[in-house]
């Protein structure tokens, strides 16, 4: 079937199988490998992208459902060489180790800060509770999201 959607601000269209999962459209069809997958039951959050600004698990959304909707992936966070404060915060606060959960965490946290620019630690923990990190024990992720919240308006810098 034909599909036309917006990914990272660009209109994309093409022919896909109705059963194609959004995560595969992003990774295979568009070649955006920053979105990962880690399970088959929508429990791990590695595949989180934004759909109309809300984080969704792209392993449990059909590409076909995205017709006319806007998708944002981790690749959209850095703009013209400027990192998103969350990206910077994850680096500053050692909020990643193997890096596999990082894109999903970043997108989940992006949506949180867009809605709640000054979240408490508990609000951050709740917001990321649909995403599993096996490496960090979450503490530094919470700290990184706080860092980003505090630096949202500050000058973004290249690593």
């Amino acid at each position: 079937m034909d599909i036309s959607t917006t990914v990272n601000g660009e209109q994309v269209s093409g022919e896909v199988e109705p059963r194609q999962l959004l995560v595969h459209f992003i990774r295979e069809t568009l070649g955006l490998k920053g979105t990962h997958w880690g399970c088959d039951t929508s429990n791990c959050g590695a595949c989180v992208v934004l759909m109309d600004g809300r984080p969704v698990k792209s392993c449990t959304v059909l590409t076909a459902m995205c017709e006319g909707h806007e998708i944002r992936t981790v690749e959209s966070l850095e703009v013209d060489g400027e990192l998103d404060p969350l990206q910077q915060g994850f680096h500053e606060r050692h909020a990643l180790q193997c890096g596999f959960c990082t894109p999903g965490m970043l997108m989940t946290a992006r949506a949180l800060l867009d809605e709640n620019p000054d979240p408490t630690d508990q609000e951050i923990r709740t917001a990321i509770s649909g995403a599993i990190c096996r490496c960090t024990g979450y503490q530094n992720i919470v700290s990184a999201v706080r860092w980003a919240a505090e630096h949202e308006s500050a000058t973004k810098q290249e690593i």
Binding site: V48, P55, V56, V61, G130, A131
Partner: peptide
């Protein structure tokens, strides 16, 4: 119910 991301769908 589930988690915040699932609750979005």
């Amino acid at each position: 119910i589930a988690d915040p991301v699932v609750r979005n769908r």
